[in-house]
Every structure is written in structure tokens, then in C-alpha cells.
């Protein structure tokens, strides 16, 4: 299988130094053709003219970005004002993703901390239990959540049977439904990096804090949290980024009023809107947001690494 290119080099650190470029070539070529070139094509498409039944006409145009940011009235002859429709959809997506992130942090941090303070042989089992749901089909998990949260779903049946409520709680087709769906989709992503950080945390620091009469809460917020901050940030990024561009949770658990970026983009290609340049432009704006966020995060991690070292 992998033997063809191997063989050269010394048996030291860099056994395959000479073969290195050949070993990496298939990955470079595949990913360049199937990821880098497509993203470049998408950028080009966002500056082309739309064809009505989907597709593009090869003529330079700023119409997609114009439509996204500017409102020129119904007939396009009024002075340009800011178009709020799409900015609102982006803003709502950011808000939904942020809420899901905060929810995941509230449940994920204590869970990760608890797992990291288990005896060493119990930890892999806990990690395994938290990881399994991530590997279960996201579509199936979202459908399951919908089944649970429906008006006649298991949750409402249970609450009514317990006598806690008389009429079913309406969760599906609301913002809260989407938030719960996003939270549920990406919760394991919050737990794992925080767990990794807490496991490396030196608990003698907590002892030192206690010796200096710090309360438990102060120890948590002033000693433990700063020490595990990179893990917490990584968890937040890993929940926030996929939530932002998510399609399934808003589509299945939200209604028309809970439209998010993912649905807006999907509609340009699969739905009736059929405006490829506009869909490409919206994707570029989303990609830019995400890359900026990842860049900020990377700088933060480098800083954290420096202060820790």
C-alpha cells in the first residue's frame, strides 16, 4: 500500500526525508484540486452575472454584493440605502451560534472538569461516552431531537404526565428549538478540548490558592479558568464555527422566521431562489468571518502559549 515511495533516507528522525515530497504529493494534489481550486472558483463566481435557472453568465458584475449590502428600492432606481435583510440573517445566525456556545460551555465545562478529575483508568471511558454521539449521523441526531421536542413529543408527554404543564411547550419552529439543536449537535466539541486542558492542569495551584485563603469560587475563576483558557477557547470555536454555517438544525427545528445563513445559501443553489453569484457571495462573506475568527483564535493561542511557557 504505502510502501512504494518509502525506502530512502537514514533510520534517524527523518527516515523518509528524500521521499517526503512524493509522500505528500497525493494529499497536496487532491486537496488543491478539490478544495483550494473550488474555493477560488467560488470567489470568481461571486463576481459574475446570474443566470436565471441557476448557473452563471461569464460577465463581471458586483450585483451579488450589491444585493447583499444595498437596498435600491423595488425597481432599483432609488438612492442606495443599507439593505438589512441579509445582515439581519447573518446577525441572527451569530446570535444563535453564540447562544448555543454559551449553553455548551455551561454544561461542557463542569463535565470536562469532572471527567479530568476521575481516576486515570476511568477517564477514557468517560471520553468515549461523550465522543460516541458525535459519530452518530448528525441528520439522525437532529431528527431525534425534533421527535423529542415536538408538541406531541416525548418531552411534552413527560412534562404533562408529571403535571408540570397543561399545554405542550412549543419548542420546534422557534429560536429556542434551533439553539437547543445546535447545542446538542456540537456539545462533544466543547467537552473534549476543555477536558484535555484540565487534565494537564497542575492541581497544586489549587492547593496553593486554598492555602492563601482563596474561596472555591475564587480558585475556579482566578486560578483554574485562566490556566485552562486555551482549551475553553478551542471548545468555543469548535462549537461556534459549525453552528454559524449550520443547515440541519435551523431547517428541521426552526421555521421560516428562524432562517440562518446556511438556509439562505442552500436556497440559492437547491431552492427556488436560484441565484448562484449571490449564494457564492454569501458563502464568501461567511468564509471570511470564519477565517477572521480562526486567525484571532490562533493569535490568542500563540499568546497563551508564550505566557504559559
Amino acid at each position: 500500500m504505502a510502501t512504494g515511495a518509502a525506502g530512502g533516507g537514514s533510520a534517524s528522525m527523518d527516515t523518509y526525508r528524500e521521499a517526503r515530497n512524493w509522500l505528500l504529493m497525493p494529499a497536496w494534489v487532491t486537496l488543491a484540486i478539490l478544495v483550494l481550486v473550488p474555493v477560488a472558483m467560488m470567489l470568481i463566481y461571486s463576481f459574475l452575472t446570474k443566470e436565471f435557472r441557476g448557473g452563471v453568465i461569464w460577465e463581471f458584475s458586483l450585483a451579488a454584493y450589491d444585493q447583499f449590502f444595498l437596498d435600491r428600492g423595488l425597481f432599483g432606481d432609488e438612492p442606495a440605502r443599507i439593505e438589512w435583510t441579509y445582515i439581519t440573517i447573518f446577525w441572527r445566525s451569530i446570535w444563535q451560534a453564540a447562544t448555543a456556545t454559551v449553553l455548551s460551555l455551561a454544561i461542557g465545562f463542569p463535565t470536562a472538569y469532572f471527567i479530568a478529575t476521575r481516576p486515570a483508568r476511568m477517564r477514557p471511558i468517560w471520553v468515549f461516552l461523550v465522543t460516541i454521539p458525535y459519530w452518530v449521523n448528525l441528520l439522525i441526531r437532529t431528527v431525534s431531537m425534533k421527535f423529542l421536542l415536538r408538541d406531541q413529543g416525548t418531552l411534552n408527554d413527560f412534562l404533562i404526565a408529571m403535571g408540570l404543564i397543561d399545554t405542550p411547550l412549543v419548542i420546534v419552529n422557534t429560536n429556542i428549538g434551533v439553539q437547543i439543536g445546535l447545542f446538542y449537535s456540537y456539545l462533544p466539541f466543547m467537552v473534549l478540548p476543555i477536558y484535555a486542558a484540565v487534565e494537564r492542569y497542575n492541581f497544586t495551584l489549587s492547593e496553593a490558592a486554598a492555602d492563601l485563603y482563596a474561596s472555591r469560587t475564587t480558585t475556579l475563576t482566578r486560578v483554574i479558568l485562566p490556566a485552562v483558557k486555551p482549551g475553553v477557547l478551542a471548545g468555543c470555536i469548535l462549537v461556534f464555527v459549525p453552528s454559524l454555517g449550520s443547515f440541519l438544525a435551523p431547517d428541521l427545528l426552526g421555521g421560516a422566521r428562524n432562517f440562518m445563513i446556511g438556509s439562505l445559501i442552500e436556497e440559492q443553489f437547491k431552492g427556488n431562489a436560484g441565484n448562484w453569484p449571490f449564494g457564492a457571495a454569501a458563502s464568501m462573506i461567511l468564509l471570511t468571518l470564519v477565517l477572521m475568527l480562526l486567525l484571532l483564535f490562533a493569535r490568542q493561542q500563540v499568546k497563551a502559549g508564550k505566557t504559559a511557557g
Partner: peptide, 15 residues
């Protein structure tokens, strides 16, 4: 893994 899935989907379709 880093690019949002919907963006990769759009880019691949366009490609």
C-alpha cells in the same frame, strides 16, 4: 475541517 461545511459544499458544486 476548518471551512464551514456549507461553504465547501457550494465551492465543490461550483467547481
Amino acid at each position: 475541517i476548518m471551512v464551514p461545511e456549507i461553504v465547501l459544499a457550494v465551492a465543490t458544486l461550483i467547481f
